[in-house]
Structures are given as C-alpha cells and as structure tokens.
C-alpha cells in the first residue's frame, strides 16, 4: 500500500509543477508582453489580475465547439489530446527536487530518462498533423506541414545538443546527471563544462543550441510561423475553437515547462544551487528548498522565452530551415567531435 501512496504523492507533486504552473504562466506572459510594449496588461480579474487565467478558462469552455463540415470528427477531436499528452508523459522522468528519505522527487525513475523524454516529445507532432489534416482545410494542412517539418528538423539538433550533456555525464539517467552537477559549485554544471574547464566551450555551445532548438520545438517566437494568424492564416489549429483550441494553447505551455525542466536538469544543475541546496541532506525541508530552486530555474527560463518572444521578429521559413540544417546541425556535430576528442585525450 505504501509504495502506491508514495507514488501518488510524487505524481501529484510532479503534475502540480506542470499543470499548475502552465496555465498560471499565461498571465505572466500577458503581463510581461504588456510591460515590454509599454502597457499595463490585464489587471482587472482578481488581485493584480491573477485570476485572469480562470476567466480565460471559463471563456474557452463556454464557447461553442465547432467541428467543420466534412472534417474527420474523431481525428479532429483527437488531435489536441495527442498534442496535450506527450509533455505530461515527458515530465514524469524529470527530477523536480532532491531526495526526501529514500525517494527521488521524480514520478518515474527511469535509467534511460533522457531517451524517454526525447521519444515522447517526438510524438507530439502526430497530434498537430492529425489536427491539421482532419480540419479539411488547406490552410490548416499547410500549417501542420510547416509545424511538423520544423519540429522534425530541430529535433535533430536538439538531440545532438542533449547528447553533449549525456557525454559529459556519461549517463542517460536524469537523476545521475543532476546529482553529478549538484554540490560541487557552478563549475560542475554541464553548461560550464561539468567539472572540466576544457569542456566549457562545448557546454556553452551545447546549451545555446539546445535553448534555441527548444524555442523552435515549442513553436515559440521567433520560430512560430506554424501558427501566425495574420500572415499565414493561422496554422494547424485554424479550424479549432472553444476548449479544443484551449488544449492546443495549454499544451504549448506544458511543453515549454517540459523543455525548461529538461534543460535545467541536464545543463543547469537541476534542483541544485551552490550554497542553497545540500545534496546530502535528505530531509523534507531540504527537499522543498530544492524543489523551489528547480521551479525558480524553470520560471526564469520561461521568462526568457517570453522576453525573446516580444523582442525578436519572426523568421522566414527558408531562414528557419537554413538555420536548422546549415548552422545548427554542423555546429552540433563539430561540438560532439570536439568534446569526444577532449574526452579521449582526457584533459
């Protein structure tokens, strides 16, 4: 009985990290966007406008769900769910805190966590394809083609960028990767070379590549041309309305959280922070502190996402593809080769 209770508690904690923060982050996004544009932003619903996401939710739910004539009804409604599920699955293996007692703060402790995340997030593209195709709308179809081509292209560089961290840590277990970075100062973070100064350029380049690829993977600006309403008649969700559109929107935030969690874990030391967390302290208080550190890191990265969104203009599609295939892929390969040479030389 007890293992199930513990598992339940961990699952609730993990889901809270993702499902709780995701919708709440929409208000942050809107307020930050407003500030950057010299506005105030939504501040009417509740104190400081904090209940705005609830109002948005009510609005989404109360709108009419329209299924286009001649659309494939089953696939049309299945699309958003297929986009929604992968980020939640992926988050199962992200360690969101230090151990409490003998338990890792992680829903499922997989030895191949990194591979699991990568394989799960790849499936999100099926939902977009299905949604775009089932809409029976040529614009939606084109939008889904754009989105899937983009995601598949950048998955390559993303995978290679993750590989850098895996090479540094010599493990696919996210717990191991985080624990190697914890408790040894900033230099132990993979972004700063994972304890070896000679690996610093590889770490920095790998993190940079991963960060940008994550933007593209999440269809965020400046790579959001799969869903730009004004210029390209929306994207794969052109025909969607009501809560099915809301699910698309929500899954964007969920996958943002997953990506930020992944980046934090493999490059930025996960739940650890020199001077604040102690990897050897397995008490409840230390666990909560480490959780707070982890969430702070995720939210900071998401803030940078938003900041970039309202700063950079959108790429053209040829620029997007050029960047993915001609710049990031070679750079990633060179980076791996470099790290391999350094590793073999044992510097």
């Amino acid at each position: 009985m007890t293992p199930w209770l513990i598992f339940g508690a961990k699952a609730v904690g993990g889901l809270a990290c993702q499902m709780g923060v995701g919708p709440a982050f929409t208000i942050v996004e809107r307020r930050v966007a407003a500030w950057i544009q010299g506005r105030v932003g939504p501040n009417r619903v509740g104190p400081l406008g904090l209940f705005q996401p609830l109002a948005d939710l009510v609005k989404f739910i109360s709108k009419e769900q329209i299924v286009p004539a001649d659309a494939d009804r089953v696939l049309f409604l299945l699309g958003p769910l297929l986009v929604f599920a992968p980020p939640i699955f992926g988050f199962c293996v992200i360690p969101y805190g230090n151990m409490i007692g003998d338990e890792h703060l992680q829903i499922a402790n997989l030895p191949i966590g990194v591979l699991f995340v990568m394989s799960v997030i790849s499936t999100g593209v099926y939902g977009m394809m299905l949604g775009g195709w089932a809409s029976n709308n040529k614009y939606a179809l084109l939008g889904s083609l754009r989105a899937s081509a983009q995601i598949i292209s950048y998955e390559l560089s993303l995978g290679l960028a993750i590989l850098i961290a895996v090479m540094m840590s010599s493990s696919l277990d996210l717990n191991v990767i985080v624990e190697q970075q914890a408790g040894k100062g900033f230099g132990a973070w993979n972004v700063f070379g994972g304890g070896h100064l000679s690996q610093l350029p590889s770490g920095l380049l790998g993190f940079g590549l991963m960060f940008i690829c994550a933007l593209a993977e999440n269809n965020r600006l400046p790579f959001d041309l799969s869903e730009c309403e004004a210029e390209l008649v929306g994207g794969y969700h052109t025909e969607y309305s009501s809560m099915s559109l809301g699910v698309f929107m929500l899954s964007e935030y969920l996958s943002m959280i997953l990506m930020c969690g992944l980046m934090t874990s493999i490059y930025l030391g996960g739940w650890s922070f020199p001077g604040i967390t102690d990897p050897s302290d397995h008490s409840i208080l230390a666990g909560l502190i480490s959780w707070a550190v982890f969430m702070t890191k995720i939210l900071s990265m998401m803030f940078v996402y938003v900041w970039i969104r309202w700063t950079l203009p959108r790429f053209k599609y040829n620029q997007l593809m050029d960047l993915g295939w001609k710049a990031f892929l070679p750079a990633s390969l060179v980076n791996i080769a470099l790290l391999a040479v350094i590793g073999v030389m044992g510097v």
């Binding site: 930050v32 500030w35 950057i36 544009q37 010299g38 506005r39 105030v40 501040n43 900041w307 970039i308 309202w310 700063t311 950079l312």
Partner: peptide
C-alpha cells in the same frame, strides 16, 4: 534588442486606470 525590451519592461507606464 533584448536590452532594449528590458528597458521598456521596467520603465514606468503612462497608462491610467
């Protein structure tokens, strides 16, 4: 560009409620 947008973000707003 990001430096510029950060300047705008922290700048006081002219909007009146």
């Amino acid at each position: 560009g990001m430096k510029k947008t950060m300047e705008y973000m922290i700048r006081p707003k002219a909007t009146l409620q």
